[in-house]
Design a binder for these strands. Structure first.
Length: 419
RNA sequence: GGAGAGGUGGCCGAGUGGUUGAAGGCGCACGCUUGGAAAGCGUGUAAAGGGGAAACUCUUUCAUGGGUUCGAAUCCCAUUCUCUCCGCCA
């Protein structure tokens, strides 16, 4: 969310910057509501001051007058509150402003490749897709998931279940020991307010799984990413600067409705309603956001380097970035069956956008209270890493060689083959 | 699920109707002291919103929302969260 004062000051800048995101926001309405809101506040404050003076005098002859003022205040207050509500609604639906480094563009086609790494494997045979491989091994079972649950779910079994678990453990170890993140095992449900804090609500409610916990109206949602719950650790807090940066990592299931992607990636486990992801979150001073973004992205690519998987780094264009992001790098891994790169990690700086929503602040050395910067990045999406290993490490006979670095996590197993 | 206790500033904690935005402590900042540090001493230190170029000033805020009152952190009601005991349970 943006600071209204800033918008007021740099009205044209905001208007222009948000045009880059190819969404339309009624800025004239915003301006109008803001102005009305302030007028009502001024009226109200004047009356409140009068009332206060009367009560200080303790003069009984003035008490009736004070009562009159009270009822007048109430009238104005009702109007002001309703205007404020509309204003907040409008404001909370405005996305973050793209950083000036971000390339201009409409959609994913305008994203820019920045670098490539790793060696793309060559096969003497036609490489199979991960779901062909997994089903043949009898270790990925989509039909079973359809029976017990429905589409876009999967049973991961046997050695692939072990691989999935190994991947989580391996990634967590690297991020904790080498990259300095604190490991968290968080709740998988988030309150409505928490979902608002990171920007999933109110605009993207359609993508969330809501869970009915009780009959009250305390809404709860399954987290679509651990970013939600990890970032909100600093919600409503004023952190001492000496505790910064805060870096958290968690491996959690993520739940998404994928409402807007009917017919997309329907085969295999590329796009599921539920998947594991190792997520990194950093909380930093606002001016350190971009440095931290580079660092975080390197933490993500570091995992791919260790797994010896080929990938490329992409910077998202203004039109393809997420709601809360000011700048985003996607890391895409090579999938031999598709002969192209697919997203396996996304690292974003959200500047103070989420912090303003969450009221997450810190005190600097001048004793000023400032909003924090928040960042999040996958390190990595476990499900898709599993896919990448299946496809890139497949052998002619359908067996899968296990990357060396993972073997200690898998009882020194070297190869997954049909039983 | 039953019974009780409680939610006050960055943190801890006092405060039961009238300059209380709120004692005291911790923390933090600055200064003095010191060869340097620690200790000690002194000063300062809430947030949000409005007005103002600024200095500054006004309003609101003691979990949240209502109510009583000229006036509420303080009294009443509802909601919510936390803690303790009992019950049930992985």
């Amino acid at each position: 969310m943006h600071n209204l004062k800033e918008i007021r000051k740099n009205f044209e800048f905001f208007k222009k910057a948000l045009e880059k995101r190819s969404i339309d926001i009624d800025f004239d309405k915003l301006k109008d509501l803001d102005q009305k809101n302030r007028e009502f506040i001024q009226k109200k404050e004047l009356l409140e001051q009068k009332k206060k003076e009367i009560s200080k005098t303790k003069d009984k002859s003035l008490f009736a007058k004070s009562k009159e003022i009270s009822s007048e205040i109430e009238k104005i207050d009702t109007q002001q509150k309703s205007i404020k509500l509309d204003l907040d609604k409008l404001l909370s639906n405005i996305p973050n402003i793209p950083h000036k480094d971000v390339p201009l563009g409409k959609n994913e086609n305008d994203n820019m490749e920045l670098s490539k790494a790793g060696k793309i494997p060559e096969f003497s045979f036609n490489p199979k897709s991960h779901y062909e491989l997994g089903e043949k091994l009898n270790m990925l079972d989509f039909d079973l998931a359809t029976k017990t649950t429905g589409s876009r779910f999967v049973f991961v079994k046997d050695k692939l279940a072990l691989l999935e678990r190994a991947l989580s453990n391996f990634m967590l170890d690297i991020h904790v020991v080498k990259n300095g993140y604190e490991e968290i095992s968080p709740p998988l449900l988030a309150s409505e307010n928490t979902m608002f804090g990171t920007g999933q609500l109110p605009k993207f409610e359609n993508d969330q799984f809501e869970v009915k916990l009780d009959e009250n109206n305390n809404r709860k949602f399954l987290i679509p990413t651990a970013e939600v719950i990890l970032t909100n650790i600093v919600k409503d807090k004023i952190v001492d600067q000496k505790h910064l940066p805060l870096r958290y990592v968690a491996s959690t299931p993520c739940f998404r409705k994928e409402a807007g992607s009917y017919g997309k990636d329907t085969k295999g486990m590329i796009r599921q309603h539920q998947f594991y992801k190792v997520e990194m979150v950093s909380i930093v001073e606002q001016e350190k956001c971009l440095d931290e973004l580079e660092r975080m992205t390197n933490c993500a690519t570091g995992i791919l380097d260790l797994l010896e998987l080929p990938y490329r780094k992409v910077i998202l264009c203004s039109g393809d970035m997420g709601f809360s992001a000011e700048k985003t790098y996607d890391i895409e891994v090579w999938l031999p069956s598709e002969k192209r790169y697919r997203e396996i990690s996304s690292c974003s700086s959200c500047s103070t956008f989420q912090a303003i929503r969450m009221k997450a602040r810190y005190k600097n050395q001048k004793n000023e209270t400032l909003f924090l910067g928040t960042l999040n990045g996958s390190g990595l999406a476990v499900g898709r890493t599993l896919i990448a290993i299946l496809e890139n490490y497949q052998q002619k006979d359908g067996s899968i060689t296990i990357p060396k670095i993972l073997r200690p996590y898998m009882n020194n197993l070297e190869k997954i083959s049909i039983n």
